[in-house]
Design a protein around this nucleic acid. Structure first.
Lengths: 146, 146
DNA sequence: CACAAATGATTAGTATACTAACTAAATGAC
DNA sequence: GTCATTTAGTTAGTATACTAATCATTTGTG
């Protein structure tokens, strides 16, 4: 009944605000969980992409994570400094950079396998509900990404 | 059937990835829409909070937007430089900083009122579906924010 | 009332994340 | 076969966003 709820500009009505705030908040939950692995959340996502396939090019990782190469470039250098991956030019196409896990990078996976369950537990939400939300977000991503 | 879909670390299974990617992608849609107003997306959210109530303290805005004062401080200075608001110490409590819209800040609202419809149109999604997603995200925010 | 504790904002330092501009390498048109 | 075009990454510049440390003011305790 208040004017606020009818107002299209009311903060609490904005999908973009709910999205931005939830994203920051959930990523914030990962911080203490990922700290023992020496990873930030974006770095964790890069590692997930490499555990699925390695080596991959910067372009390929960027397409998987929807990140610009300009964002990935320094991020990958930090992971290289941490000893988790190597970066070297592709022999067949010198423009491409192959990013490949090191032994340390591969073995970090064991610790990472414990992460998802810890997050779900801290969230205290139903897994089925979380999967529903994930699917809605994937749909939203497709609509905005076109 | 592939091992990937059973893998708890598969990128496409992560709520956090869907959340981060959708957030960046949707915020990216706002960029061309907000550019004519001279606002970034976080600045737009600050303006939404001030159109609801002005003046407000930095603390108060931070609680509404779930942003740290350290994030808001430089952001508010930019909006002050843009002439959209003023910043001055509260008379009754000199620790607090009152943030108040200027005439230019108030009048920008007219242009901003056209923003939500433009985004919905570009997304091409059902408004009811978007509201469902927003409510799920609000729920997720509450679970992660505790 | 003096002084420790708490509160509100700022500053410093690190890490994303974007666009735009640039470099180097490969492709394609003629 | 040469040269314009395209493609892959990097660099520069700006704006978030966080934690930790700091500063100033206010509150609360004895």
């Amino acid at each position: 009944m208040t004017q606020m709820q009818d107002d299209p500009l009311a903060l609490d009505r904005q999908v973009c605000f709910a999205l931005a705030a939830a994203s920051r908040s959930v990523i914030g939950m990962y911080r203490p969980v990922l700290a023992p692995l020496g990873l930030t959340h974006p770095q964790y996502l890069v590692m997930l992409s490499l555990w699925e396939r390695s080596p991959r090019t910067v372009r390929d990782i960027g397409q998987a994570l929807r990140l610009e190469p300009a964002t990935l470039s320094p991020l990958l250098k930090r992971l290289e400094s941490a000893g988790l991956l190597t970066r070297q030019r592709n022999r067949e196409d010198e423009r491409s950079l192959d990013v490949e896990l090191t032994a340390a990078g591969r073995s970090l996976r064991t610790k990472a396998e414990l992460v998802p369950a810890q997050i779900v537990e801290r969230l205290g939400m139903d897994v089925a509900e979380l999967e529903r939300i994930r699917d809605s977000l994937t749909q939203l991503l497709a609509a905005s990404d076109g």
